[in-house]
Simulated assay, not measured.
Amino acid sequence: MKTRSPRTRRPSRPLRAVGWTAAVAASLLCLASVPSSAAVDGDWLPAGLGITSGISGLAVAGATGTGDLLAVHDNKHAGQRRLSRIQVAGNEAQVWEVRWDGERLPVDLEALSDVPGRPGEFVALESSGRAYHLRWASGAARVLREFTVPDVAPGDNYEGFALTSSGGRLVAVWAHRGQDEDPGVLATARLDWATLAFGPRVSTPVTVPYPGQDVRHVSDVDVTSSGQVVTTAASDPGDDGPFDSAVYDLGRVTIPAGGEPVLELRAQPLRLGTFAGHKVEGVVCAPGAPSTALGSDDENLGAAVRRDDLCPSVIAP
C-alpha cells in the first residue's frame, strides 16, 4: 500500500507500431503485447505501461503453468484495473484485463492465490487483510465470498497470501510486509473452506539481509506443493526507483497428522535470486516443478514479468 499521493489515470495514447505487434494494435481486448525486441533487461518482459499497470501478486491460471498467469494490481480508484491475465510464450508477454464482478471494488490488492483442488477459483487479498474468494471464467472474476485474515492489527500491511493443502486439510500462509527496522510477519493457520473459519494462528517475524535500504521484508509469498515457503523482498525508495529485489526460501510449513500447521524456518533466509532494477511483488511456483514466475510493480516504469527455475524442492531448514 502506497503512502504517497493517489494514483491517477494518464490519458491514453495510440499504440505505436514500433515495439508493439500489429495484432495487438488491432485488438480491443489485449492491453499489452511486447515482442522480444522490446524486452527489458535480461529475461524480463514488459507487461504494462505506467504506474497503474504494476503487478502486486500472481497465480497460475491454466494448464501451461507459469506461462499462463493471473495478476492483481494495487490500484485504488474506479476505472483502474484490478486483475489481468498474462500469457508468456517465448520472448513475448500478452496482457488482457479481467473484469472484476462484485459489489465492492477492492482497494490495494496485494496478493493472489489459487484454491487447491478447485480449478478456476482464487483468493485475492487487500493490504488491509480483506480477502475475496473469486471464480474466474470468460474474462471476468466473480466475487463469491469475502473474509478477513485473523488478528489484523493497526499498522499491518499485507503483501502475501497463499493456500496449500496436506492430508485433505487447507492451510493459509500470509504475511505483513514490514519496512526497514519493522520486521515482516509470516503467519499460518488452517482454513475451513466451507465456513471460512481459521484455526489457531502461528506467526514469526521475518527480516532479510538484502536489499539493504528501503526494504519491504516480504513483498509476496508462495508455498510449493512440497511445503517450501518462497518469498520476495523488495526495496522501494519512490515512484522512480531505483528498485531492487530478492527471492528467498524461508523454510517450510508442515502439517502434523491431526495437528496444527508448523512453520519450520531456516536460521537465515536462503537467497534464491537477486533482481536489480525491479520491485518484485509477485511470485508463484508451478505445481510440482521448479518453474517460477515473477512479476514487478516498477511504479512509473510500469510492469514486467520473468520466468525462472527458482522454486525449491524439499530442503531441510
Rank of each mutant, 00 (worst) to 15 (best):
A71Y: 00
D244W: 07
G212C: 00
S165M: 10
L31Y: 03
V185M: 07
Q87V: 02
V72I: 13
A93C: 13
D220Y: 07
V230I: 07
V230T: 00
S56G: 15
R118M: 12
D297H: 01
D101W: 08
D180N: 13
R9L: 15
T8I: 15
A137R: 01
G62P: 09
T232W: 08
R145P: 09
S84D: 11
G227R: 04
G90A: 14
A63G: 10
R4Q: 08
P312N: 10
N157H: 08
V185A: 12
A293R: 00
H278D: 07
L70P: 04
A257T: 05
G227N: 10
A89I: 11
V95Y: 02
A78Y: 08
G42I: 11
V123K: 01
A124I: 02
R216W: 08
E110S: 12
D222Q: 04
T232Y: 06
L294M: 02
R307K: 13
A17S: 15
V262P: 04
P200R: 02
L45F: 09
E146L: 13
G79D: 04
L83W: 01
T274S: 08
S219L: 02
D41Y: 08
S37V: 11
R266N: 15
S33L: 10
T254I: 15
S27W: 06
V123F: 04
D308C: 14
G277L: 12
D297A: 13
G184R: 00
S225A: 13
G238P: 03
P116I: 03
V206I: 15
Y158Q: 07
G67C: 11
A89P: 04
A276I: 09
V107C: 07
V283K: 05
K279V: 09
R252I: 14
A153T: 14
L196V: 05
V98R: 02
G277M: 11
T164K: 01
V88C: 04
G227K: 00
L125M: 14
R177H: 11
V185S: 09
V230W: 00
R13E: 14
V223W: 06
A267K: 03
G67A: 13
E103D: 13
V283H: 02
P154R: 14
V143Y: 01
G273M: 08
F243N: 05
S291M: 09
E281Y: 04
A140L: 13
P119M: 12
S138G: 15
P183S: 14
E146N: 06
W20S: 15
P119C: 11
